[in-house]
């Protein structure tokens, strides 16, 4: 069982970078490869090819920490791209794609900044814990 956890976000867009911050804290502490992506859609889908399971951690417009239905995961950092679900569906026709779960951290301000807001910062430990739980569930499920 090979797993990957991908933090998605733009480090220059304030709270948008929260996914990157979460996976940074998981490096070396989980039985999964940890990656960071400043892109979504097709790029993101290509990054998870070859794994059995992928957990994506990203900011979303909303509140708190919650799992997001993959089919509704439309978050991208670029408009010159197709959505992640479309990219996943397309690539599935050519390669074996992993099972995917998406963990979202609610944000409301994504302005030019390298700082996370205090409001979002407090959710990082919650998201880290949830990510670990998901990885354990998946490993247990597969085993």
């Amino acid at each position: 069982m090979s797993s990957v956890i991908v933090g998605v976000g733009n480090p220059l867009l304030g709270d948008d970078a929260v996914g990157l911050a979460v996976v940074q804290r998981l490096k070396g502490r989980v039985n999964a490869e940890v990656k960071q992506a400043i892109a979504g859609g097709l790029e993101l889908a290509e990054m998870i090819v070859g794994y059995d399971f992928a957990l994506i951690v990203d900011a979303f417009h909303g509140e708190g920490v919650q799992e997001i239905d993959v089919d509704r995961y439309q978050e991208t950092v670029a408009n010159h791209d197709i959505s992640f679900p479309a990219a996943y569906t397309m690539l599935s026709r050519y390669v074996r794609m992993p099972r995917v779960r998406v963990l979202g951290i609610g944000v409301d301000h994504m302005d030019i900044s390298e700082e996370l807001s205090e409001k979002v910062r407090i959710f990082i430990p919650v998201a880290v814990k949830k990510a670990k739980t998901i990885l354990e569930e998946e490993n247990g499920h597969i085993i």
């Binding site: 733009n10 439309q74 408009n79 791209d81």
Partner: peptide, 8 residues
């Protein structure tokens, strides 16, 4: 800016 979805 960070945008949602495909060419919102």
């Amino acid at each position: 800016s960070h945008a949602l979805g495909e060419t919102p």
